[in-house]
Simulated assay, not measured.
Amino acid sequence: MKCALIAIALLITLDVQAGDYIQLAAKINGHEVNLAYDTGCEAFVLFESTVREIGIKWDEPKPTVAFHPGKVNLGYTEQVNLEIVGLSLKGRCRVLDPPLSDDLKIDGLIPWSFFREGILYFNSHEYGMDGLNELPDDIADWKAFRLKKSVPLLVFEIDAADGSTIDVMIDTGADIGVALPRNKFADWRKNHPESPAAVNDGHTAYSGRNVDEICWAEQISVGDLTISGVPVGPLYRGLEYNSELYDIVLGLYAISRMELIVDYPNGTLYIKPNPRPPREYVHNRLGAVFVSSNSDAGDLIAHVIKDSAAYEAGVRNGDVLVKVDGVGIEDGNSASGISTLSQFWSKPHGTKLNLELRRGDKPFEVSVILQDILPPKKGSRVDPRISSTQIY
């Protein structure tokens, strides 16, 4: 089997803040590599650091090539030999230099198309994937949906109550929950003002920095698909650029709340609920982000959620972050700076952090005890309207 992967621009949905992937051991030209199976990616991708380490020749992308927003301009390698799950493939692959590639603990991405010709079972709670020879005996008890086979990503269709069709993408390259179009999320948030909310600060290869509010839904429904215990937020801006391919995105956390079988030859995706309680959701437990008004550098200015750990410690909108536990952040707008700060804010519940800040010309310090926000603690005040929400 050969795969000629030579196009220059493609959709990449890898969230560099995410720490969990469906990982597959493989070999490239005899060298062991660790690849993530990313159903939100169009083609086989190796990271530039891996290409250089293995010694693969590659052509850098031409800077004059025009490509659509939401896609990444990539180079491609000479022909390589790929060995993965018993398959031997020859072909070119694309080369990406993602922010924080050394922190991702993976060497590249395997696209949805590589394994779609069979029957796949996603045990997403354990980040596993298996091939099936046949459908399970209880498949009649699973909900069945049509696959959208005309697109290069894992997308299925749901019939809405008004007769329209909602296209839903499964994205195993991002550890997110349910991502809605920004106007839909704004409507949802307006109708659920008491929903617990954290703030997400991430960086993607295709759209740069994204700072968004992330909320929690005890139950959310799209057509006749219902997901329980899941974070809800807006689509990353880069994902919105490709809205002609899908309406909603379900990330790894969302599909960890279900069992999933994809029968591509017969054009059907099957889902049944995962009865286990939600796993830990890694999120910003500080309840604040610090963003420079200058896209390149400058003071890191606080944006604080009311009643959060940061707010209770005395941090207010407009305060400037200087150090965290004695560590200065030289460029908090860069991918590495965002990652450094996010690693502080996502430390476990109860972690104590010392923040050095400045308000106007006056320096001051506060101690913050990080608090779980998502999912809400049992017994906490939760808007009863988040117990059941119909989106479409």
Score class of each variant (00 low, 15 high):
P273T: 13
L353T: 07
I261T: 07
E42F: 01
S228C: 13
Q343K: 14
D361T: 13
I373D: 02
L89H: 05
K184F: 11
R279S: 15
R52M: 03
A161W: 10
G131D: 02
P348E: 09
C215A: 14
G118M: 04
S49H: 06
T268V: 10
G75W: 00
S292Y: 00
L321F: 00
P234W: 00
V72C: 05
W216P: 11
A186M: 06
G287C: 03
Y281C: 10
D299T: 04
G298I: 00
V222D: 01
S113V: 07
F122H: 09
E218C: 05
T13L: 08
I176P: 00
E78Y: 00
V222Q: 04
G360V: 03
S49M: 03
S88M: 05
A144Q: 11
F122K: 09
S124E: 13
W142Q: 10
N73R: 12
I54R: 07
R285N: 14
M169N: 08
L357N: 05
W345P: 03
W216C: 08
I373N: 02
A174F: 12
Y37G: 14
A4E: 13
I139Q: 06
N354D: 05
L132P: 13
K323N: 12
A140P: 00
G328W: 01
Y241C: 15
L341M: 15
F114G: 10
D325Y: 04
W188L: 11
G40P: 10
V222P: 00
D107G: 12
K352S: 11
V230E: 08
